[in-house]
């Protein structure tokens, strides 16, 4: 009985990821069938490169969601730090690109700390707090940019190279994403803080009894999210060689969608790094593949929405069935 039970649960959680993987493969086959240009080295490189920023943000968002929170301000944070980093490099072209990245991260961290403070200390619901900050940060971005864009020619090539250069034949963006992925994998699975994030989301009351400092965890989670948004902001601006006030407007929804597709529960406690990565890849495949097979751009949003809704319902129904089966198997 116990053995069976365990098998079942393990299978389910794997099943979700395999299901996702299966869906990606299926989608790939369909797209490939309709347009053979899909599975080419060049296109796959593009796909991975374009998914890099999304997956970086999705990993951060995963932690936020695990603590039963949400962060809608990341698009604005991304724009703000990208804008400030771009302004800095355009004023000081000799600045080392690493420093530019650091500036971006720093701005992001400050934004994250503000949100973390509002959520953990003041006790505002994350969705409200981040909505408010989203407005404020977006306004700030327009303000510091003075309505202007920072364009390619104003950026030193060292800065633009962050996104275009490669190391060992792999694009830097992808390398950064991989490093962050590996770090997160280690962080959430093998460090105490990482596990405490899950514990807090799984049962906030027990967490208190276990002596977990929930304020600290919220601060860490939102600060990390902010830092990652800041990093993503620099990468974004470097990649597109342009910083605008409305950069990544509404991007937070895509990020949250990637998490949800990846099986992160908004009720907290559940979410796997690999799942989130798959979720981001799925969206990447859709973004890359739909134009290739001539799907009207106006249908993309609807298709994306439908897929997300189906994924959410599918997760819930599977979970419900498993619970019922478990109960059925109990002998009275």
């Amino acid at each position: 009985m116990t053995e069976k039970n365990r098998m079942n649960l393990a299978t389910i959680s794997k099943f979700r990821e395999f299901g996702l993987l299966g869906f990606i493969v299926l989608l790939t086959i369909v797209i490939q069938f309709l347009n053979p240009a899909f599975l080419t080295l060049g296109n796959l490189t593009d796909l991975i490169k374009n998914t890099a920023i999304l997956s970086i943000l999705a990993l951060g968002m995963m932690l936020v969601l695990i603590t039963r929170g949400i962060d809608l301000s990341i698009g604005a944070t991304l724009a703000l730090s990208g804008m400030i980093a771009a302004l800095t490099v355009s004023a000081y072209p000799d600045l080392h690109p690493l420093l530019a990245i650091l500036i971006g991260i720093l701005v992001g961290v400050v934004c994250g700390v503000v949100l973390g403070f509002l959520v953990s200390k003041v006790g505002i619901l994350p969705i409200i707090a981040s909505l408010g900050l989203m407005n404020a940060f977006r306004g700030l971005t327009f303000w510091v940019g003075g309505g202007e864009w920072i364009s390619a020619y104003q950026m030193p090539s060292s800065f633009k190279n962050i996104a275009t250069s490669s190391f060992l034949g792999i694009n830097t963006l992808v390398i950064i994403a991989i490093i962050i992925f590996l770090y997160f994998y280690y962080f959430v699975n093998n460090t105490i803080t990482g596990r405490q994030i899950y514990a807090l989301g799984s049962n906030p009351d027990s967490a208190k009894i276990s002596g977990i400092n929930s304020h600290k965890i919220y601060m860490i989670v939102y600060t990390m999210m902010g830092g990652l948004s800041g990093l993503a902001g620099v990468l974004w601006v470097s990649k597109f060689a342009s910083a605008q006030g409305n950069t990544a407007s509404g991007y937070e929804l895509t990020v949250i969608a990637a998490c949800i597709l990846g099986g992160v529960s908004i009720n907290g406690g559940v979410g796997k790094v690999t799942g989130v990565l798959l979720g981001a890849v799925l969206l990447g495949v859709l973004d890359n593949g739909l134009p290739l097979i001539d799907v009207s751009p106006f249908w993309q949003m609807g298709i994306e929405g439908a897929i997300i809704l189906v994924a959410v319902l599918f997760n819930t129904i599977v979970k419900k069935t498993v619970e019922k089966n478990n109960r059925l198997r109990r002998v009275i």
Binding site: R195, Y198, S202, N203, D205, S206, A207, G268, G269, V270
Partner: peptide, 11 residues
């Protein structure tokens, strides 16, 4: 019972 339903027994 004050446990973490989403985490493993070990944890």
């Amino acid at each position: 019972v004050t446990n973490y339903p989403d985490l493993s027994v070990t944890e």
